[in-house]
Design a binder for these strands. Structure first.
Length: 427
DNA sequence: TCTGGGGTCCTAGGACCC
DNA sequence: TCTGGGGTCCTAGGACCC
């Protein structure tokens, strides 16, 4: 097969086992030891070190199911500590930004870099230098994949981790080995091909990234949605995706599972108020306002012996708002519409939708709220919570002693963001 | 006993209008 | 009784990503 050569070169850099690596930065004795990191509520496994993967503990597995294996092998267990991970992520991203004129932060542990200007024969050495220095500066190990499209760079990164010879850095630009590389990648590992599409493709004899790149366009168009066609083009070396700079959020969500099932409307109102307050704080930080708010509640879908109720509804706001008190009122109205008595609820959530820049909010003719005054109040609230810690000032509606609060029995200290917790460690 | 959370995009189908 | 067809907007659901 032949490849199209584009002028762009992308590097996809990601942190290896990021959350597990973060825990190790402050506990170097854990290097080489098995680690798992648990989701909120200590529910399931969301990160594993290589040693844990080797034990056969799967991603997303419920903690309680993996517990026997975890205990038998002395796996170190951590509740998710997103304050810590977010801070270390910022350090990694800042280090990476030294290596390219343009960079897109794709997720908490991944970034695309634009290496288009570089001489191709230097790319591998450059990637290796980047890996060495970022690890030295931050303590977080990374892998680097380089290619002409984002999708191929993702694939190069995948192979960089797999191949002993690549040892964490693989440059696939103009590589005579690209066909072999594509043949080595199962179709389900391709960026943009999830479980459902992989199953369907396999049923039609498409097993590898190579098979997919060879696929018949007309047939693919008929059987798959447009984004998959784009993925195929990218595998062929035709860049369809470019670097994106700080995308404006379209929605902001906050939801939690409860530590215990909850039937009481009053308690649900508290949780929904707290989630709304949290989402609204992030909304203001993004300098946005929302025009619609959605609330959902549901029972535990894994409990087959209890009656189930899932529902959600959204309410439009006459004037876009960033005001916590106003949003809580709307959220409570939405909750009242979907709440049904007699169910053991397991999770609730709030999503702020139809976001618009706060400074472009259209005033409603009949709006009776003094928005600039409310905005000043919200700024003061956010400032206090920044200075004195999140939750220093809260709305009474959020409740004082929330029994729906999540469980975190294995959390590490907030080493980088909370002095008092760091002091505890050093004592 | 114990199964996460936060996003994006696309599409099918219903409501509504002319 | 007979009862079209096309466009648009919205929403719900499902796929994907981390």
């Amino acid at each position: 097969m032949s490849f199209t050569h584009s002028s762009r070169i992308f590097a996809l850099v990601d942190a290896n086992n990021f959350y597990a690596s973060c825990e190790r930065v402050f506990r170097p004795a854990l290097v080489g030891k098995p680690i798992v990191v648990l989701s909120n509520n200590d529910g399931c496994i969301i990160a594993r070190s290589n040693e844990t993967k080797a034990l056969g503990i799967r991603m997303g597995e419920p903690f309680y199911k993996a517990k026997p294996l975890i205990q038998a092998h002395g796996v170190h267990v951590f509740s998710a500590n997103f304050a810590l991970y977010g801070d270390l992520s910022a350090r990694v991203m800042s280090s990476l930004s030294e290596f390219a004129p343009e960079m897109e932060i794709y997720s908490i542990d991944e970034a695309f870099l634009d290496l288009s200007g570089m001489q191709r024969h230097h790319l591998n050495a450059y990637g290796r230098q980047m890996k060495q220095l970022v690890e030295q500066w931050t303590g977080i190990p990374i892998s680097v994949g380089i290619a002409e499209t984002k999708t191929l760079a993702q694939m190069a990164n995948y192979l960089a981790k797999k191949s002993k010879k690549a040892n964490g850095v693989l440059d696939l630009t103009r590589s005579p080995h690209r066909t072999r590389a594509l043949q080595q990648v199962p179709v389900g590992e391709v960026w943009g091909v999830g479980r459902k599409f992989a199953e369907k493709l396999q049923r039609h004899g498409i097993q590898t990234a190579f098979d997919l790149a060879q696929g018949n366009d007309a047939w693919l168009f008929q059987h798959f949605p447009a984004p998959l066609l784009r993925t195929v083009q990218e595998l062929r070396g035709v860049a369809c995706l470019s670097l994106e700079q700080a995308p404006i959020p379209k929605s902001i969500a906050c939801s939690r599972s409860f530590a215990q099932p909850e039937e009481d409307l009053g308690k649900l109102r508290e949780s929904v108020a707290a989630y709304t307050a949290h989402a609204a704080e992030r909304l203001r930080k993004a300098k946005m306002a929302c025009q619609r708010l959605l609330v959902f509640i549901h029972t535990n879908r894994f409990r087959q012996n209890v009656s189930q109720h899932f529902d959600s509804t959204s309410i439009g706001l006459p004037t876009a708002s960033e005001d916590t008190a106003e949003l809580i009122q709307v959220a409570h109205r939405a909750l009242a519409q979907i709440y049904k008595e007699g169910y053991a609820y397991h999770k609730a959530g709030v999503v702020l939708l139809d976001l618009v820049p706060a400074n472009e909010v259209q005033q409603n003719l009949w709006d009776t709220v003094n928005r600039s005054q409310r905005s000043t109040l919200m700024q003061a609230l956010d400032q206090i919570n920044r200075d004195f810690g999140s939750g220093a000032i809260r709305y009474a509606a959020e409740g004082l002693c929330p029994r729906w609060r999540m469980k975190q029995e294995h959390r590490s200290p907030r080493y980088t963001t909370c002095w008092s917790e760091l002091a505890q460690v050093n004592a």
